[in-house]
Every structure is written in C-alpha cells, then in structure tokens.
C-alpha cells in the first residue's frame, strides 16, 4: 500500500483532541430508567488511536455519541478540539461536526442514492466548499488510491461489498482532516481479512497523517490495533490501558 501524504501540519496544537468530565447519560424515566453512562471522565490525546471496549449494553455507543455531539449528555461536559460542546445550539453543533468530526459507523454509512465519490465529498459539499480547492482534490486522490477505491468511485453503495463500503466511509471521514474521527464498530459486519484491512487503514491514518481516531469495538482482536484501550462496564470506565506505540 502506498503511504498517505499529508498536505497539512499533522497534529493540532492542542494536546487533547477531546475530553469528557463527569459525563452522565440516562434514558427514560421511572420504571424504564436506564443509566447508560454514570460519570465518565476521559481524555483522548491527539494523534492517537483509542479503542473503547466493553460488553454489549455497557454504554460504548452512548459515550461515542455524546463525545461526537450527536446526543446531548444528561450531565457533564465534553470538549472537542478545544471547544465545549454543551454551549452550542443545534446549528452550531452541526457545523462543528461538519468541520471537525469524522464518522464511520457499523452499517448504513452511505447514502444509497449517491455514488461512492459523491458520498466521500458529501461533508465538504454540505460545508459549502463546492469549489473543491486543488489541495483537497489532491488529498482526495491520494486517500482514494490508498484505500483502493479508484475503480469503485462511480458505483452506488448497493453495488459495493461491505468492506468497500466501510473504506468509502473512512475516505469520507479522512477527507476533511477532522480533529477527531469516531468509528462505531467499523468492522462489525466484515469478515476477518476485510476487518484487518480496515483496521490497518485506520491505524495508518493515525501514524502517517497524525489523525486522531476513536473506535468503539467489542472485539479484542480489533483493539490490538489501537494505541490506548478504555474499557467500559455498566456506564463506568473500569480499565485504561495505554501502551505507547
């Protein structure tokens, strides 16, 4: 695989890509009250690949949604790229996500009526950067080539394999060089060789582009690709492993 060339200075000057303090999230009320998160404190250093692990129902997705500004926490604060999310209204938050956060989900990552290329450009287009400056175009070409998607750009999601779809999603997440990329079980639907491919691509983006990636997974195998591992159980962090690369 060719290496990713970085057109921009790699790591942002802030040491922390994101952090959470006293993060609490409850769903429902009365009998159906669920404590998905019970006061989580977490620092995600920039330029590292962090895996969030835990059993099903432990609150991994909820944590990720709150960190990414997709959901409002019940209590506590979240800071991403040096900005506090709780002070933002919906529109500001949306624009913030568009400019600073990338996503890769387990499934339904792509819009079915858009081609792979259109899907990759979507956030840029939503941001109104329709002009597509030449640097971005070059970055697009290099990412697409690295991810092996060049021949698939005109295909629609329905015409792509699961692994290819995830690669398109990764390309989309990386294109705008966001402060942080969140991936929720990006390999959940893939066989082991496609999984390995996707995971090493994510790690490569951290190593070579200085990208910050946070990945939710319950596969121990997947977690071995990460620099740091955070383990959740019943809405609390029970373990932090930092094995510096």
């Amino acid at each position: 695989m060719t290496s990713l060339t970085s057109p921009q200075p790699p790591a942002p000057t802030v040491a922390l890509a994101a952090s959470a303090r006293g993060l609490t999230k409850t769903f429902g009320r009365g009998d159906t009250l669920v404590h998905a998160l019970r006061g989580v404190d977490l620092d995600l250093p920039a330029g590292r690949f962090t895996a969030i692990m835990g059993l099903s129902g432990s609150g991994k997705s909820t944590l990720m949604h709150c960190l990414a500004g997709l959901d409002q926490p019940t209590d506590g604060s979240v800071t991403v790229a040096g900005q506090a999310l709780e002070s933002m209204d919906d529109d500001t938050l949306t624009r913030f996500r568009r400019d600073h956060v990338g996503f890769v989900f387990q499934a339904f990552n792509l819009l079915p009526m858009l081609s792979a290329e259109q899907n990759i450009w979507l956030p840029t287009e939503l941001a109104g950067q329709a002009g597509r400056d030449r640097d971005l175009r070059r970055r697009f070409d290099s990412i697409v080539e690295t991810l092996g998607l060049t021949a698939r750009l005109t295909h629609r999601p329905a015409e792509l394999s699961g692994g290819q779809q995830q690669r398109v999603a990764i390309a989309r997440a990386l294109l705008s060089a966001p402060a942080i990329v969140f991936a929720d079980e990006p390999t959940g639907n893939l066989d082991s060789s496609s999984s390995a491919e996707v995971l090493s691509l994510l790690r490569q983006s951290v190593r070579e582009l200085g990208q910050t990636v946070v990945m939710v997974t319950h596969e121990t195998e997947a977690a071995t690709y990460a620099d740091d591992v955070v383990v959740l159980a019943d809405g609390r962090i029970t373990e932090r492993r930092g094995d510096a690369a």
Partner: peptide, 16 residues
C-alpha cells in the same frame, strides 16, 4: 430515518 441521522451527523443542519 437512518439516512437523515447520518446526514445530520455529517453536518446537514435542521433547516437543511
């Protein structure tokens, strides 16, 4: 629903 959620995650505002 899922698509709209995805679009919102990727940066489409409510108004959009």
């Amino acid at each position: 629903g899922r698509e709209h959620a995805l679009l919102r995650a990727l940066g489409l505002t409510r108004r959009q």
